[in-house]
């Protein structure tokens, strides 16, 4: 990991360009407001307080990530925001309107693609448009436009099964965005992809987000991914799932993968690592080890 001898600035330090950008963001209208959200699961083994006292708001065209250890309630949170689950208490407001149940104005991209296997790629993207009442021809034209944007126009007539994971996820993103949602939720969308595909997908997502009027709420457990993509990062703590800290990422935009080693980036990463360090290492647990090799050399 990073040695402490390396002099890093504080992650709280922002260059003037970055702080100006945050000021502008603050002045934009609030897109999503979450108020005193809690979620309790009644299980046979007792109640699980999956989310407790969650409060935050997201401004228009902001890119916000949620990060936290596995099981801290990220999925629970994003599902409640998308309307797929109900909170035990608290409210979710979209542009001031209280939200209940899922709707087309809140798009969602799942980790396991969830493309409709019986529809071609194009028909998948047309699905939401047709439901909205757009005519077949219009829907088709618009779907093709979106496929063009995600670079899959030539796979329009293929079935999802024929695509690779990354391509499937691009179709899923196109399908959600074609619907012109006000906010797009993504739950670890790149979690199942290999490293190369994942980084190209991140670049894709950034590019699309820059060119589309959409607010993004992004769940991940990958620190680099969160820093690289987001304006702000919500760090969740487990048991109960509470907001640990809300970090303003000091890395200036436009972002590129070259920024992974800049001091701002590293400083933010270091802070995130401190916050979500796996508990096992904290306890300095010693794993009993017996040497079973009989090679006999002393090389460690």
């Amino acid at each position: 990991m990073m040695s402490n001898s390396l002099e890093l600035p504080s992650y709280l330090e922002q260059s003037s360009a970055v702080s100006a950008r945050f000021e502008k963001l603050q002045n934009r209208p609030v897109k999503l407001k979450v108020e005193d959200l809690t979620k309790k699961f009644d299980t046979p083994k007792g109640d699980i307080l999956a989310l407790n006292n969650i409060n935050f708001q997201i401004h228009r065209r902001e890119f916000v990530s949620v990060i936290g250890p596995s099981g801290c309630g990220k999925t629970t949170l994003i599902r409640i925001l998308a309307g797929l689950d109900f909170p035990t208490s608290g409210n979710v407001f979209l542009e001031g309107r209280r939200m209940e149940g899922p709707g087309a104005e809140r798009g969602m991209v799942f980790q396991d693609y969830t493309l409709f296997p019986w529809l071609s790629v194009k028909k998948n993207v047309m699905f939401g448009l047709e439901i909205k009442g757009l005519g077949k021809l219009n829907a088709e034209a618009e779907a093709m436009e979106w496929l063009e944007i995600v670079g899959l126009a030539k796979f329009a007539d293929a079935y999802p099964e024929q695509l690779s994971g990354g391509m499937k996820q691009r179709v899923a993103i196109a399908r959600s965005l074609a619907n012109r949602p006000e906010i797009l939720f993504l739950d670890e969308p790149f979690g199942a992809l290999d490293a190369q595909t994942r980084s190209s997908m991140q670049a894709y997502l950034l590019k699309i987000w820059q060119n589309v009027d959409v607010t993004v709420f992004f769940v991940t457990h990958d620190l680099d991914e969160a820093i690289y993509l987001s304006d702000r990062i919500i760090v969740l703590r487990a048991n109960p799932g509470e907001i640990d800290e809300l970090i303003e990422v000091p890395v200036p935009r436009p972002r590129s993968s070259g920024q992974f080693l800049t001091p701002e980036f590293l400083a933010t990463k270091k802070r995130l690592e401190e916050l979500i360090r796996p508990p096992e290492l904290e306890q300095n647990e010693v794993i009993p080890m017996i040497r079973l090799t009989e090679v006999g050399d002393e090389v460690e």
């Binding site: 998308a82 309307g83 797929l84 899922p102 709707g103 087309a104 809140r106 798009g107 969602m108 799942f110 396991d112 969830t114 409709f116 699905f127 939401g128 439901i131 909205k132 899923a172 399908r175 959600s176 619907n179 939720f185």
Partner: peptide
């Protein structure tokens, strides 16, 4: 998740039955 995906795309109950 297919049903949920369709819901987030705006499908109502009838559409979920017939289209998903």
């Amino acid at each position: 998740s297919l049903i949920e995906a369709a819901q987030t795309l705006g499908a109502n109950r009838r559409q979920l039955l017939t289209r998903i």
